[in-house]
Amino acid sequence: MTIHVPNVNHRFDPLTINRLGLWLFLVSDASFFIALLSSRVFVSGTSTPDEINQVLGLSLTVLLLLSSLTAYRAEVAAENNDMSHMKNMLLATMGMGILFVFGVGYEWYEALQHFPPSTGFGTVLFTLTGVHVTHVATGILTLGFVYFRVRKIETIGDNLFAVEGAVKWWHFVDVAWVFIYPTLYLLK
């Protein structure tokens, strides 16, 4: 049996091709988020109900921004082959991600009382945060897979793109939140 690994390319190394692929995917997904944000105004105008938990919203934002920092540290560590630091930072990022998911869960619990999905603002809130938290979940999963792969190895070697890709994805998810947060919480 021929065992075959597609023997890509003459001029670009696999790392570059993978990076390009990831960037294209991010462009595509960003387009989805633009659609998402544009529907906010259609469905519930620019008004934000007073019952929304501003403290929670702000804390979630800070939490995600912090996690972006640790994700960044993990990538730098990977580039420098500092495996133990990298693993710690990956774990820290995942931890904050999980905390974020719980935070959104609490937000939903509160939202169900004031603006359930069957109201205009509820529709927007649950859709925006729902789609976003799904992205966060895929981010945590990806980081988890990467962690699982690198947990025993000594040098980063071929796994650099795995770390880099997961971290880029995480940054992207954070940036998406940076747009969702004001759209949801801060519009007057």
Partner: peptide, 11 residues
């Protein structure tokens, strides 16, 4: 989820 994107009121 019984959301209301498209029907009034709201949608």
């Amino acid at each position: 989820f019984n959301m209301v994107f498209f029907s009034p009121p709201g949608g």
